[in-house]
Design a protein around this nucleic acid. Structure first.
Lengths: 150, 150
DNA sequence: TTACAATAATTGTATATACAAATATACTAA
DNA sequence: TTAGTATATTTGTATATACAATTATTGTAA
């Protein structure tokens, strides 16, 4: 991808600005391809992320704050995100008996089955996105990603 | 940033998946910091992006499809995005006399003034985000970004 | 000229997201 | 016990975004 061509600019862009723009263009590509891959399952990237978190719990229920803490993109409304997953019968929600402020969220069998299928397609998408990277280059990229000030 | 710690996972993540997650975590950081930097001006990142595109036109008006084509994150509704900028009096809109299907969008003096101020703060944010990168590392990063399959 | 296709923008609708305020429950110190 | 504080989630509201349908205008071929 040629950044200047993509954003159709003629003037010179400072290296730092160019890098940030380039980065965000790639991030958008990743997002689009992931969203596209998940479309047949009618779940958003965020919903998929929540399902993965719940599977990682291995049967142990998670509450909303745990989920939010682990999400890649934190959204300010995990309640409604989970609502959508309940409607699809991918997760179930119960109030925690020991602490009734908390709720317990569990992935259902149906959710797990669908998630396996999503996983396969998402992996394919990841492999496709990164097909030009050697193992060494992937490591290099991760090292550079670590340099971003957060 | 330690990815595994951030998403609080214990199991091993495949290198490709880890890279994508890492990438998106950084992309979110960039977005948050940019949005924060622009907050005092009451414009979104997308609105800022449109203002920059209009300034790049150097007085020549742009129509909606031109703007959309040049945006970093294409959104499916540039009409309403421009509406917001008109409300703030940062841009003005006229129907193109030679082709009345098109509209001409221009940045106003007020828009240009505000944009200069935004630019300064956004540059600061960019520098801050990339402060740990040497020039060589920035080049390396841009080369790796080019390897993503789009 | 007129019908049809192409182009450009707008509008409708559903969902997503950010942020603040409200609600419900539990904990704690007087 | 009770008042106040902390925790956990939910709700309200505004804005953002995706996608499809609609409207307006222009170009073109019969």
């Amino acid at each position: 991808m040629n950044v200047e061509e993509r954003i159709k600019t003629v003037g010179k862009i400072p290296m730092e600005r160019r890098t940030i723009i380039h980065f965000m263009l790639v991030a958008n590509t990743i997002n689009e391809q992931m969203a596209q891959a998940l479309k047949p399952f009618d779940v958003s990237i965020q919903q998929f992320n929540v399902l993965r978190i719940l599977r990682g719990q291995k049967g142990k229920p998670a509450n909303l704050s745990t989920i939010n803490e682990r999400m890649v993109t934190k959204m300010s409304n995990t309640t409604r995100l989970v609502d959508k997953l309940i409607l699809k019968e991918y997760v179930e929600r119960n109030t925690c008996p020991s602490n009734r402020r908390k709720i317990e969220i569990l992935i259902t069998l149906k959710g797990n089955e669908q998630l396996s299928k999503m996983d396969a397609i998402v992996s394919e998408t990841e492999t496709n996105l990164l097909q030009q990277f050697s193992t060494n280059e992937l490591e290099q990229l991760n090292i550079l990603l670590n340099k971003f000030q957060s």
